[in-house]
Design a protein around this nucleic acid. Sequence first.
DNA 1: ATACGATACGTCGTATACGACACATAATGA
DNA 2: TCATTATGTGTCGTATACGACGTATCGTAT
Lengths: 162, 162
Amino acid sequence: MPAEQHPGRQGIRKIGAQAERIDSDLAAIRHAMRKPAEAEFAQAGLTVPQTALMRAVVLQNGVSLKELSRQLSLAHSTVSGIVDRLEGRGLLVRHNDPQDGRISRIHPAPEVKEFLRTQLPALTQGPLQAALKRAKPRERNAIEQTLRRLRQLLEEARSPAV
Amino acid sequence: MPAEQHPGRQGIRKIGAQAERIDSDLAAIRHAMRKPAEAEFAQAGLTVPQTALMRAVVLQNGVSLKELSRQLSLAHSTVSGIVDRLEGRGLLVRHNDPQDGRISRIHPAPEVKEFLRTQLPALTQGPLQAALKRAKPRERNAIEQTLRRLRQLLEEARSPAV
DNA sequence: ATACGATACGTCGTATACGACACATAATGA
DNA sequence: TCATTATGTGTCGTATACGACGTATCGTAT
């Protein structure tokens, strides 16, 4: 039997307790980031996911649903629903791709386009960015590195080195 | 127009870009943690939030809704809905507190109680714990420290020393 | 004792969020 | 050519998730 995994002699129990604490922190982080922090675009009546989606659409005119789904790490059906509501409000439009009939390309509505392009720098991340400003540069980098690593660890699960 | 020859100090723009990357990572982490990773209790038909709630209820028999809401970092209405469904399945029961009529104390259903108490160690966090096992102890600690710090930074915003 | 604010919970409407399924279109192979 | 497979969306059912509102109960001041 080869050498065991990384946990080594630090037992599973300890990792379990640590996982609970981390899970709790992640939940709190999610919760805190849900509110647009009274940001300027909350006044426009947009939720956080709607804002993120609008942002992506404005930056990448004519992006496909699949691509949006990938970028936002959301299921395509979820993105489809968000697009539905924004389209219903007249903030977005769907166009069929002339080359590939399967794809529906998503564009900002003409009126909104100009407005958003000028406003974009202002309506950034909100609570997260505010939090980062409170941190020291060293801390900011630690946060970014660590989250990337955790993401990597979680996504490694998919392909367990078959 | 002399573009940015010398960025000078690290301005808001840089933090904004960093915030975007972190936001993207957080979304991916959330996404990856949503799936119980084909864990043992997925077979029981429980979602991740339901599992977390059951876990809390089993460990703290007769916990109140408010307390659950606090521990899970969820709105009380959300917790109420989850309890509704679990109660509908016969996994939980609500009892009125005899001391304080406002409080409804939540207990595991008698049959489930015994079963879960023995199974609890096995059905832990799932994807998160699996990911942590893949990390070195040093990395695990870094993740915990960093997430706690980010949570703290985010929660500092709420109460400006009222 | 009674009024009144605070607290705990339930309910409602809406917006995510997912997987499963259906369908149209594209790409491939026989 | 034409069947088969793969891909991109849309839709449906269900489960979160929240804020707003209503209601019952508790604590407290009058």
